[in-house]
Design a protein around this nucleic acid. Structure first.
Lengths: 135, 135
DNA sequence: TTATATACGACTAATTTAGTCTTATTTATT
DNA sequence: AATAAATAAGACTAAATTAGTCGTATATAA
């Protein structure tokens, strides 16, 4: 419990690789998969998420690949997490739009408010850590 | 991802109930299950974990139940989490004894050290929040 | 003796996460 | 024009974790 997903771990690793290799060629999914010893298909998806979320720019075709859009200093871990996860919340009912929460005791729950505070603090840990800090 | 388990949510709720009802009778698993609308068997186990971990004292038999051992001010959320979870780590390799980690790239992992720091910060969130604060 | 409670392990079901497969599209190179 | 190397993306399967149930033993007040 309270575990980061492999997807997020791979995203951190991939972002790190992009940051360390941002001169000359574009880094490819294959290159990162080999270098970090993680499954190719999963890195590929992570990188696609980076591109969709403007963390990186993708170049298709031969000699293609990815490059970061910002300096590592200006990318926080929360950006990376949000790019690859749509559910990074401490409880189900923390969703921004909690109308669709299926929690059966939302109405009688006494611990939701304090947990929102916990959530905020945990968010902050990732907001306040930049990619540069994990190089 | 990064979600608290139901077990932990139930543990927070149960601890809260014990704290709010610590005069006169001992709170029972049934009472808490009914009051918080959570499955009896699960609260029962949570309470057993509290007893084993000296957070509460149990009284067996009719008119039995549980009472907290310390004031809510002196019980931190990390105590509650540790009582019910043996795996509350951000990554598999964060285990105190990481010799039994099965992570295949422990030796080439570049993000472990920064993640240890993240782990420490998240731990702190729970260390620094007392049961009193969620009443 | 009975009713009410905790203690606890084994088991099953449900959900989530991780990983794979397949196909389409883009583009540099030959 | 053909080929090879790359991204794009959805569907699917497998594995692992989490949630919940069942059964049985033990303790104790009435």
């Amino acid at each position: 419990m309270l575990k980061l997903s492999k997807k997020t771990e791979y995203a951190f690793m991939a972002a790190r690789h992009l940051a360390m290799n941002n001169s000359g060629h574009y880094s490819t999914a294959k290159e990162i998969a080999d270098n970090c010893q993680i499954p190719y298909q999963l890195v590929a998806k992570v990188l696609q998420n980076f591109a969709r979320n403007k963390i990186a720019t993708s170049f298709q075709g031969a000699k293609g690949g990815y490059k970061l859009n910002r300096l590592p200093d200006n990318i926080s871990l929360i950006d990376i997490i949000k790019a690859v996860e749509h559910n990074y919340q401490v409880t189900e009912c923390m969703q921004e739009d909690n109308s669709k929460s299926t929690c059966s005791h939302l109405d009688c729950c006494k611990i939701r408010d304090p947990l929102i505070e916990i959530q905020r603090k945990i968010d902050n840990v990732f907001v306040q850590t930049s990619l540069k800090q994990i190089l």
